[in-house]
Amino acid sequence: MAADPLAGRAVTGVRARQAGWRVLTTLGKSVAIFVPVFFVATFVTFALRSLSGLSPARLQLGESATPEAIHNIESQWGLDRPFLVQYWDWFTDVLHGQFGTSWVNGADVATLIGLGLGVSVSVALLALVLGGVLGFALGTLAALRRSTWVDRAITGFVTVVSVMPAFVVGIVLVEIFAVGLDLLPSGGYIPITEGVDLWLAHVILPALALSFDVVADVARQLRTGLVSAYRENYVLGAVVRGLSPRRVFFRHVLRNGVGPALATLGIKFPSLVGASVVTEWIFGLQGFGRFANDSAQAGDVPAVQGVLVVSVVMVVTFNLIINVVLGKVAPAALRGV
């Protein structure tokens, strides 16, 4: 049967198409989940102006403005149109990367956010990498040495880590590395283009502070995932076929046990992005968390809306990536096996 080359080629073609199709289906399904999320999130974000009752007129004219002056300014900003019309305009602008102009200084919001994005993304991604790597190492070690003192020590450590909020970790890190040992700067940012070591020195502490949460969750999920994967029959099957423990771990156990941990990375990412408000404040970084905080305190609605939308886009994009990776690595996890 296999000797027929034509048949072989046809089947190979079918297989390639199947594989491509599988990736597309995962992507399609994920998009189907995240499109409503994006809509709801932008809608809520946009509704903030009406909810807060803030107006650029108050910012520009102060409390003593006459109703006519207020009306004038509001119609300049197009705020007197029906709510849904405003939403639709704003939404199409957002799709084009336009977030309008700041009420406070008239600057382009997209540009302002862009200025802080490098800092925030640097910190968030580094935190993700740190948290992922440490969490994977700890979770794997605990699973491989399950029910020994190593496992218990890691579980204990992870519990302690998981109850430390980012700002507490941040303060402790500043205390140890900046104040105590004077090894690292306690704040500020230097772009990676001006030297990787300088960049790293400035972002490592905030990233570490953010990563604790990730470490704890990834380690826990991975341990659980691996331990339960080790109990599966296909592991026994692989052992009986004479595969080495290392191969059994990497190809059979890890592949199926990693699902929950990967999914956790996706779930944790929003809180990583969110916690940037706190860490950027502690470490004096001018990222978008700080920008969101400052803009919100100043009542600059378009700026806040812009930051929130950007954060949602980051979360959604990251989760799409995670879903595709998950579909590749452990298709069974997505099928709910």
Partner: peptide, 18 residues
């Protein structure tokens, strides 16, 4: 594998689902 090998009941569970 190369000298002694085995198959069991419930074959689906003995294959890696991923």
């Amino acid at each position: 594998g190369s000298t002694i090998s085995a198959v069991f009941q419930d074959p689906a569970s003995y294959l890696n689902p991923s």
